[in-house]
Nucleic acid binder design. Sequence first.
RNA 1: GCCGGGAUAGCUCAGCUGGUUAGAGCGUCGGAAUCAUAAUCCGCAGGUCGGGGGUUCAAGUCCCUCUCCCGGUACCA
Length: 683
Amino acid sequence: MKNNIKYLVTAALPYANNYVHIGHVAGAILPPDIYVRFRKLKNDDVIFICGSDEHGTAIEMASILEKVTPQEIIDRYHFSNKKAFEDLGIRFDIFSRTSSEIHKVTASEFFLNLYNKKLLYQKTEKQLYSEKEKRFLADRFISGTCPVCGFEEARGDECENCGSNLSPLELINPRSKITGDTPVEKETTHFYIPLADYQEKLSEWLSEKKNWKANVINYCKGWLKSGLRDRAVTRDLDWGVKVPVKGNDGKVIYVWFEAPIGYISMTKEFFIGKNEPEKWKEYWSGKDSRLIHFIGKDNIVFHSIIFPSMLMAHGGFNLPYNIPANEFLNIGGRKFSKTRGNAILLRDIVQKFNPDVVRYTIASIFPENKDSEFTWEDLQAKNNNELASILGNFVNRTVVFAKSKFGNVIPEFPDSGSHMKENGILEHIKSKADAVADNIENFRFRDALSEAMDAVRSANKYFNDSEPWKLIKDDKEKCSAVINTCLEICHSLAILFEPFLPFTSDKILHILDKDTSGLKWENIGKRVLKSGTALGENSILFPQIEDSTVKELNLKYNIGIDPGNSPVNVEDTNNMNVISIEDFHKVKLRVAKVLKCEIVPGSKKLLRLKLKVGDTEKQIVSGISEHYKPEEIEGRLIIIADNLKPSKIMGIDSEGMLLAAKKGGKLKIVTVDGDIEDGAEVN
RNA sequence: GCCGGGAUAGCUCAGCUGGUUAGAGCGUCGGAAUCAUAAUCCGCAGGUCGGGGGUUCAAGUCCCUCUCCCGGUACCA
């Protein structure tokens, strides 16, 4: 049933200084894709907007550190992320970027609108300025000695040693992180938006939002309660949208102000591409239009407080209808972290697995109410026990049956006879679809998915209870009705699962030799197939995922290594924690002689080493076979951590760890300078 | 320090304004079936709902307190 509402759905703009990981996907990308796909199946008027957020200090910093242009940085991540989203089946109507011309114009106009209405004011402040680089230094470009604890590598915004929040001006001996020179204090003038002016209107507006998620409302209340502070909307930086007011050279619009305007400019761009350059206004200003922002919880303030304030200040735009923010997806009990090497990048995971398996796994653990936990074991279990066993198997057993017993065509559904059960199961699938729809409309995607899976369970039950393998022997007509119905169910499932598993949905249609003309939500539970149609080639929808794959991935992503037991917990290679000599002595390093070395069969990079350490022999498993052949290591002296807690890697005991130096894909094992007896202590 | 959120079966999580024997999926175990990727279906078992105290006829659900985890934010400088 089509309604008159226009849905303008946005996904949080990924920042183009990194590859997106599955945490982003779980928080802000996949939920809207499911939502939008569902709306489209219902023939609702919906558009799905996203793109890269490409300005700001972090990108400029990255470009300086890598000695490339900012353009190279953003191109790298923009195109890679775009491709990764496509591979996952995320179907944006547009995935653009904030470096586009239309965005710069739109953001400038927005800024000028506020400026001309005198809704911004200017204020002069002291900031640190590097005379050598001829630029003001952003907080994160500065390090210095912490005035609180004396830590010498404190950052401009906070001290990682004592946790104090700092302003760069407080640092003792501040220096530029780029050149190392000492900056000076210099005055600079910036535009500010007085957010407090919008506090009352915001409170009023938010108090009407009865159906928003509690976590979002709570968050907003907290901010409003403590009072909104004015925020600078410009800053001294090269990389960004220039401030469109004379006398502001070297200043750009602050990225927090400019980026959300990207939603607007990208909508414009989308309709320009469709030759309807004015139509974007219907979505942003129309009476029956609903703006829905899908974001992660880190973005709640911007979307529920700051951007709405901006929209109020500007006027003429709808405020967000809903902001179904998700919490965070963790891995191994910890947050995704680049430095720990445990971030699972979208580009990697879609290469390794069927994207629908990734979609299913993530959707089933969406952090809708609280942070949730991703494990590879989970992905394997969801694939093997749910997708393969329940869904894949239902389709397969039905199709294989039709092929072998009905000559590879869709058998007839006879007019005669009673078909209570046959019609009943289709009605039941339909009622499940209603439950799925209700859940999706209310942003309860996990529940929606589990309802959909329930529909397949009942389909399997129908198959079992009908016992077609018996009917084929003594009541072929009834059997025909059953298998026909099961194939119809397959078609219904293709629709029902399309929002979650679009690739699988497609495959099922192929197997049924059906085009997408019937792919409408209203067709769920209806009989739409033509009997006599030859079935397409059947394929296994979800091949099993082996244990060895899971172990390999756990190793690769450093999962399962107990952080509490490691004596030295290195948080960040740039900023190493200081440890005592006692801490160091906890690690017993010894020289070991490699007696025998062999590749661990089935592994990607594991070697099994038999070692002689003084009087004892031990075995370790090490992930270095991409760098060393077994014969290169045999007979050599290496250094091992001797008293490491033993562990099993791919079922093989490992009683230590060899030392190796690693940088940028290169790896060299640590050895000794000359000959010495194995077992010798290293310190 | 202060504010907010979290701690529920082996695992991942639901439990709205307090109300009959605390739920689901997966896993485990038992049974049925054999068309199907040994895939299905049915059933049993599993929790003193982080600890302690309180309010109430009744608390996972409200109040107090403690422990641990995660966010946000202030000051001392």
